[in-house]
Design a protein around this nucleic acid. Sequence first.
DNA 1: CCGTAACGAACATCTCTGATGTTCGAAAGT
DNA 2: ACTTTCGAACATCAGAGATGTTCGTTACGG
Lengths: 268, 268
Amino acid sequence: MNSLLVRFLVVFNRGMSNADRHGLIAKAVRDSGGATVQELAELTGASEMTIRRDLDTLAAQGVLERVRGGARTLLLRGEEPPFALRAHEAVDAKRRIAAEISALIADGESILLDSGTTCLEIARLLRDRPVTVMPLSLQAIHLLGEAPGSATLVVPGGQPRAAEGALTGPLTLASLAALRFDTAVIGCCGLSAADGLTAYDLDDAAVKKASIASARRTIVATDGGKLGRTAYAYVGPSTLLHTLVTDTTAPADEVAALEGAGTIVKTA
Amino acid sequence: MNSLLVRFLVVFNRGMSNADRHGLIAKAVRDSGGATVQELAELTGASEMTIRRDLDTLAAQGVLERVRGGARTLLLRGEEPPFALRAHEAVDAKRRIAAEISALIADGESILLDSGTTCLEIARLLRDRPVTVMPLSLQAIHLLGEAPGSATLVVPGGQPRAAEGALTGPLTLASLAALRFDTAVIGCCGLSAADGLTAYDLDDAAVKKASIASARRTIVATDGGKLGRTAYAYVGPSTLLHTLVTDTTAPADEVAALEGAGTIVKTA
DNA sequence: CCGTAACGAACATCTCTGATGTTCGAAAGT
DNA sequence: ACTTTCGAACATCAGAGATGTTCGTTACGG
């Protein structure tokens, strides 16, 4: 269906940035499960050598798997998509959700910030505000620690998990137990009124649970695709969540059910 | 004395990198306590506009203070030189010390890595070795977390102090109390057989003290200039230190005194 | 209040790094 | 053994950053 669009791109993409091309390649490989170097060269209008270099880069990032002659997707079934891959998608929606959440936070608050791509966008917005932030991912720690904005950074202990750098483990739980926050901003992998909040990973779920317990108020940030879905590890019931910020793709029935259970829902 | 060298540079420095110029400016301002834009332009051979931009950059980094017409040093008396400033100096010696320390560490060890520029170099060397590392500075966490080498990263909790990103505070102490390491690699601000190990900052000293207590073996990394010096905050006696790695500028009498007190001294 | 020096925004120019494509010998698969 | 793929090496190109110049504005000293 979008092959017309692709044709268009092939002709007029002299100014295509390599990030765009990487996204295109990642999408092509993911959608069809695999692709040859030739196909990708034709698709993007780049030379085969460039495609090989791209594939090496993407393979190093864990977005796809390199095979002789082309590349294959890493996603077999139901697994959590790699962080590097998710980072490509739906940046606009995440930005809007992040802006909405930033507006919910008052100056001077202490904030606990979960891992995930959406929360990373939130970190970007909080950097120049007079707040105290404890992020639960290495990426957000980098962001807040490098260019010292007006935000105060507190680093939790922990062991980084996977490419995302989500901090987990006993050190993280101990840091959470030692502190109390005004607001916890949590990402999620699945959320429904029936099954509550769920995550892909047990360690991650334990951290989220402790995060919610350490905060006076909990805000969940998630795109509409996660609503109504249930992932593997159970975190807690939706009644623990004070506010949910999502985008316009959220299914109406699920939103209604969550609102019925007492959660304030905002659509960005 | 080295004004001849400076003259030489003025004439032949078409290919001077801006880092070189920044170092030159920082040194000039530090040595004389202040300098005008004109003086610095003449010294470096760059235009006044470029000098102004440099000064803005260096002021943002906390290396110096901008005043109308020029810049002033931030160092009043006996204070710790800013991290951004120290980072310029003596990179070679730090590299050699780092290499020596890396050689002292066996595969499979768990290592506690202090903050400081020398320890940052050590982190660079440990990244691709099969060891477990808990660094006490944001910079080293970045280094080990970004490009996942073979080293396992453990993040301590804490609050980053100053530009260096040294982690301190109760969260850091709690993380240290919860873990035990094979080796602690410690930097220092002053070390002598008489006054022991000292640091510029009380919080930092508390972290160093706890670090030494959490490790089976303690290695101190420091350039020769710190030996025989005593800084403000006391950490502990030199007898706590198993090995000292320093460079050839170390004063012989101090080295002898430390060896007499039971510390193994290696010169890189 | 005025004059002078300093400042910084805007633009033009330059340099250099990183990205890309081409070629060709080596390696892998059939 | 033959074909395809790979990747190292080199040439080329574009974009980003650095630098310098100009000029209107601002701040300090009288």
